[in-house]
Design a protein around this nucleic acid. Structure first.
Length: 567
RNA sequence: GCCCCCGUAGCUCAGCGGAUAGAGCAGCGAUCUUCUAAAUCGUUUGUCGCAGGUUCGAGUCCUGCCGGGGGCGCCA
């Protein structure tokens, strides 16, 4: 059976053959052919596929594109199992329309594949890692982190569907100066609970959650961490504080529906396995380190960077850049990922180039590293912009968002915008559970698909034995056409790393279903219902409903959303 | 000063170099004895920031401006 994925390549060879035949017959001059140029027209009225080859050949062939199109079309097979006879349209398109028989068979294909429908093989045998969120464990996740979580998790799911062996990873920044500042703030709050007049550090974390954290530790361990006034905090307090914060973050993400395969500790880079030493050793052996002004520099300017970068400070502590070098050494060399995607907020973009350079210096292929930057979220409430800042006063936490808006709706909104575009998140609007909210539109379609199957079952009708050849209506075949696009969408997302195509496709698929499902109302013709007097037709339509449900559930799950049976 | 992202309908945003630029929401008008009306159908809206260039063809690629945001630390 020809499946939807091979239609494009089938068309390519059909067109290539027709061109050869046209040349042999003298209808076309013998020119170099750049490939069949099969595209999908924007407008469905123009067909399912189109070739722009005549437009591309016009100059070399010294003929008007329309004439070339006719010449090629004249040598295409008049009948095919896959497509109807092609049309030629000005200024020089050859349009192809999938045959009803082919579309009908795809319904069987979808049902046969079930949840594996639209799986691809483009990542087969390759290991991919998606690292996302990775916010410093110095405070609760905020709404902006939610965008990274939605993007990273959906991307990981899509890569899995595309055949990659995927790991989701959270990089825990449990080393470095911000961790120290966190510890100092925590100790100040802790001491305050014992009546000491201590201020939190100037650049510390003023949020109330630090008070709560200190109180929780006091409840659990009493004054175990209290030291004489003026003495520094015990190191263990910091460790416990970070642990609690990481647990908090893990719970938040779990409520958001995100599960990680790996929580990778920055500190572990410096531990027993000596990852940091090994990675730095590689750079040293290659002569890419230099001591200057008491610090150790990576001489990245020799590799095309604007400047050299410090890896070890003059006080002997490694920079976060050093950690990232070691971390990516671990990703590529030790763990052997073929594809590494780092999902970062756009404020880290200055770091991308030098990380790629470091990756290359470590002996890995920088092509395998893709840093996906997402612009930060602008929050609006009551028409006013709320600035996000962990250190500033007000933050809106991801927990609050999940509680008030719901994980499904939040994810859908986050995915809807391309990562590179700033997005506005209107809290008042998102909290509104109204029809303005497109997430309900998509989920409602799934709920209706489910209830149709349930209603039919109550009458003893199931999709079993339905003959898909009876599916001939425009809305029926239109729904099949939309279902078939899923694999293309997965391929696009898996190769461009742009997850916004998922929610747009989901809306489009839901729309095709609603149009099919409500046609009987619009045309006031009850024979267009799924469940009708005609049992054979009903069973055939139930097969379509079952297939559509499979496709819609798949795209919802790829977005990390639930596919409700009822609403 | 240099680098990156964005600028498309009233609003929020899609748009792999191709056909008269789209969707959702908002607006207007229809459709409920409903396989769930959280739906469907019809209809209105554009100097695709500006100016050049490349191309048979540019919202899409290149250059320069303008506007918004973010970077350019021995912070992460």
């Amino acid at each position: 059976m020809v499946d939807a994925r091979s239609v494009r390549s089938s068309l390519e060879s059909l067109v290539a053959e027709a061109v050869r035949a046209a040349i042999a017959a003298g209808d076309l001059p013998d020119v170099a052919v750049p490939g069949a140029a099969i595209e999908r027209p924007k407008d469905a009225d123009q067909g399912d596929f189109a070739s722009t080859l005549p437009l591309r050949l016009a100059r070399a062939a010294m003929k008007p594109p329309l004439e070339i199109a006719r010449a090629i079309a004249g040598h295409l097979p008049a009948d095919s199992a896959i497509i109807d006879p092609p049309d030629v349209a000005p200024p020089g398109f050859i349009n192809f329309r999938l045959s009803a028989a082919f579309l009908q068979q795809q319904v069987e294909q979808v049902i046969a594949l079930g949840p594996a429908y639209a799986d691809l093989q483009i990542g087969a045998g390759k290991k991919a890692q998606v690292e996302f969120v990775s916010a410093n464990p110095t405070g609760p996740l905020h709404v902006g982190n939610g965008r990274g979580a939605a993007i990273g998790d959906a991307l990981a799911s899509v890569l899995q569907a595309a055949g990659y062996d995927v790991e989701r990873e959270y990089y825990v920044n449990d080393a470095g100066t911000q961790t120290d500042t966190f510890g100092d703030t925590l100790y100040a709050r802790y001491q305050q609970l014992f009546g000491r007049a201590v201020e939190i550090p100037k650049d510390g974390y003023p949020g109330d959650y630090m008070k709560e954290l200190a109180a929780a530790i006091k409840t659990e361990r009493g004054d175990a961490f209290l030291r004489p006034e003026g003495e520094p905090a015990p190191a263990e307090l910091n460790v416990i504080g970070i642990e609690l914060m990481v647990r908090n973050i893990r719970d938040t993400l779990a409520a958001f529906g995100v599960r990680y395969d790996q929580w990778f500790s920055e500190k572990s880079l410096y531990g027993g396995e000596g990852i940091y030493d090994t990675a730095i050793g590689v750079l040293r052996e290659n002569g890419q380190l230099a001591e200057r002004e008491g610090a150790l520099w990576f001489t990245s300017s020799e590799l095309g960077e604007d400047k050299d970068n410090v890896v070890v400070r003059s006080d002997g502590r490694p920079t976060y850049y050093a950690s990232d070098i070691a971390y990516h050494y671990d990703k590529f060399i030790r763990r052997g990922f073929d594809l590494v995607i780092d999902v970062w907020g756009a404020d880290h973009h200055g770091h991308v180039s030098r990380l790629k350079t470091a990756t290359r210096a470590l002996g890995a292929d920088p092509e395998g590293l893709h840093v996906l930057l997402y612009q930060l979220v602008v929050l609006k409430r009551g028409g006013e912009v709320v600035r996000l800042s962990k250190r500033g006063g007000e933050i809106i936490t991801l927990d609050e968002l999940v509680e008030e808006v719901g994980a499904d709706a939040s994810r859908f909104f986050f995915l809807l915008r391309s990562p590179g575009a700033q997005m506005e998140f209107d809290l008042d609007l998102a909290k509104k559970q109204s029809s303005e909210n497109p997430v309900f539109y998509v989920q409602y379609a799934h709920a209706r698909l489910s209830s149709i199957l349930e209603r039919a079952a109550e009458q003893g009708l199931t999709p079993e034995g339905g003959d898909v050849a009876l599916l001939t209506g425009a809305h029926e075949l239109g729904l099949v056409r939309e279902m078939l696009r899923l694999a293309d969408v997965i391929e696009t997302v898996a190769t461009t790393f742009e997850p916004q195509h998922l929610p747009h496709y989901a809306m489009s698929l839901a729309n095709a279903f609603h149009a099919f499902n409500d046609a009987f109302k619009q045309q006031n013709d009850s024979s267009l219902k799924v469940i009708t007097e005609d049992q054979a037709l009903s069973r055939a339509r139930l097969r379509l409903v079952l297939a559509a449900k499979i496709a819609l559930a798949r795209v919802l799950h790829l977005m990390g959303m639930s596919a409700p049976e009822k609403m």
